[in-house]
Design a protein around this nucleic acid. Structure first.
Length: 260
DNA sequence: AATGATGTCAACCGCCCGGTG
DNA sequence: CCACCGGGCGGTTGACATCAT
């Protein structure tokens, strides 16, 4: 295949780098015959000069039947955003709720889009810092009893005193303020979860009760997600104009419409 | 048309965890 | 109880593709 400089040099005898169609064929035939697992023995038994890890990765991310190809749909993107808000970088966990998508794919997607956001938020941060500096200069001339903390609260309205009861991802968001911009808190969503584990079990239960596509994510909502009470939360996304909404009536219902 | 910037994707690396002897 | 090993996972890298200037 393409420029393999450096790739070809075998380490511990294993081949590295891009897989050839022949290798794919060998691996597929072997797994179809013997099933997944025992990856270290797969390499030798299938006549592949690859490490077990490499075989597993190739199978899971590329050869496994039922994998979807191509760009993620707006619906899938919305789900990723939601689940990442719940679980953070638990890509494999998130992938379980996106049939046909791999954790690697989701991870790549998130990195690409989050990076984009990070960059623009860095610009914002710069501008903010400049404004703050200017403000401080003005304050020196005319002191005002308004601490920066209060300003932060206005800027980051979802971060409240109750934050310590939320899932760990919210704590992560506190450390990375730009995350707070992206996600509604669980509180805002009125999801009955207090921990990642609870979130997982709730979601599992919910998927059983309501069905993923019809219940939790109302993908066909033409109104961009106003709930019955007319509540609407807007999440600002730098790279895409994304809007969604959350039930404000205390129910579990999440009525989200993603507009890309 | 050329070139640099950015996006996408496949693959590797290193760490962690659970099973096993 | 402990060491070892294999598998799984998240982070990172590098090559190619596409877009913008």
């Amino acid at each position: 295949m393409v420029g393999m400089m450096g790739w070809e040099a075998p380490q511990q005898g294993w081949r590295k780098g891009p897989w050839t169609p022949e290798e794919d064929k060998l691996l597929t035939e072997y797994v179809n015959l013997h099933g997944e697992g025992r990856w270290s023995s797969v390499a030798r038994s299938a006549g592949l000069n690859r490490s077990g890890k490499s075989c597993r990765l190739r199978w899971v991310n590329y050869l496994r039947p039922g994998l979807k190809r191509g760009h993620l749909t707006p619906q899938e993107e919305g789900i990723i955003i939601e689940l990442h808000a719940l679980w953070g970088n638990k890509w494999s966990t998130i992938a379980r709720y996106l049939p046909g998508r791999t954790d690697n794919e989701i991870k790549n997607y998130w990195r690409t889009h989050f990076k984009k956001k990070e960059k623009s938020s860095q610009k914002q941060e710069k501008r903010k810092a400049q404004t703050l500096k200017l403000k401080q200069q003005l304050q020196q001339q005319q002191p005002k009893p308004q601490p920066d903390k209060d300003e932060m609260k206005r800027v980051l309205p979802v971060q409240t005193e109750k934050a310590n009861t939320k899932v760990s991802q919210v704590t992560e968001a506190q450390a990375r303020p730009e995350m707070v911009f992206m996600y509604p808190t669980l509180e805002d969503q009125c999801l009955p979860v207090t921990s990642p584990a609870a979130a997982a079990s709730w979601l599992d239960q919910y998927l059983v009760d309501e069905g993923l596509w019809g219940g939790l994510w109302n993908l066909d909502d033409p109104h961009g997600g106003l709930d019955q009470a007319g509540n609407c939360n807007k999440i600002a996304m730098q790279s895409q104009a994304t809007a969604c909404s959350f039930g404000g009536d205390g129910s579990n219902l999440y009525n989200g419409g993603y507009i890309f």
